[in-house]
Each structure stands twice: as C-alpha cells, then as structure tokens.
C-alpha cells in the first residue's frame, strides 16, 4: 500500500490530539467531561481513520452526494478555515480569562484598605 505525505501528517496530528484528550480525561483535569472527550474522539479519531483508509470517504461522499477532486479541495479549505476560527476563538477566550484574572487581582489588592475602612467605621456605629 502506498502511503502519501498528507496521510503521515494527518495521522501524526490526530494521534497527538487524541493522546492529549485521553491524558486530560484520565487525569480528570478541570473541564474535561465525557462529552468533551467523546467529541474529541470523534473529530480527531475520524480524521485518523480517513488518513489510514482514504477510501472510507467514498462511502461518506456517496451518502451525501458529493464526489470529485475539486469538491475535496474546497472541503479541505473549509476545514482549514474552520480550524483557524476555532483556534482564534480559543485564543480570544484565553485572553478574556486573563483579563478577568487581572481585573480580579486589581480589585482584591484593595481588600486590606477596605477592611481598614470597615474597622474604622465600627466605633462610629456605637456613638
């Protein structure tokens, strides 16, 4: 069986992503639920299967009625754009979390002076 370069790359990427998913799920890292794990398994596992058995796409193509090389190129393009958007949104979310964390730290830095103010107010109450 002749193996193409794209197959090796796809198998490598999907293996890494699957390994990460399994590791995070088994370690029960925060946010790692079974559903998230299942989604990762389907997406990256599916890519791995397609890389090993390219003909498996024929079944899918016949099922949805898309055939031809040009369509495959367009679909690949869509996939790449989707991955890019996915990556960008993930990065934005990470930045949002960092902003919240910084905002929290700044707010909590005033906690000691707030406690001081509260203590100073107490004698006034008894007057």
């Amino acid at each position: 069986m002749k193996i193409h370069l794209y197959q090796i790359i796809m198998i490598f990427i999907s293996s890494v992503m699957l390994f990460q998913g399994v590791k995070e799920f088994l370690k029960r890292e925060t946010g790692q639920t079974f559903l998230k794990f299942a989604v990762r398994l389907i997406v990256w596992g599916g890519m791995g299967v397609v890389a090993v058995y390219p003909n498996s796409t024929m079944f899918f193509a016949k099922m949805i009625g898309i055939e031809g090389n040009i369509n495959a190129v367009i679909l690949t393009g869509f996939l790449l754009v989707f991955l890019l958007i996915f990556k960008l949104l993930s990065a934005i979310e990470k930045i949002e979390q960092n902003i919240s964390e910084l905002t929290r730290k700044e707010a909590l830095s005033h906690l000691p002076e707030q406690i001081q103010i509260t203590h100073n107010q107490e004698p006034d109450e008894s007057q």
Binding site: I99, S100, T103, R104, E106, A107, L108, H110, L111, Q114, I115, T118, Q121, E122, D124, E125
Partner: peptide, 24 residues
C-alpha cells in the same frame, strides 16, 4: 457601615464578580 466593597475596573460579568467575592 460594615460593608467590604470591591470594584472591578471593567465589567467582566456576574460569574467573574461572584468569584472575586468568594476569593475575598
């Protein structure tokens, strides 16, 4: 009197504010 008031400089959402309060 008797209130510890903290402030987020920018609006981050109810969850973020609740978490700040819990940490405090």
């Amino acid at each position: 009197t008797g209130v510890v008031a903290l402030r987020h400089r920018i609006n981050r959402g109810k969850g973020a504010a609740t978490k700040t309060g819990i940490v405090a």
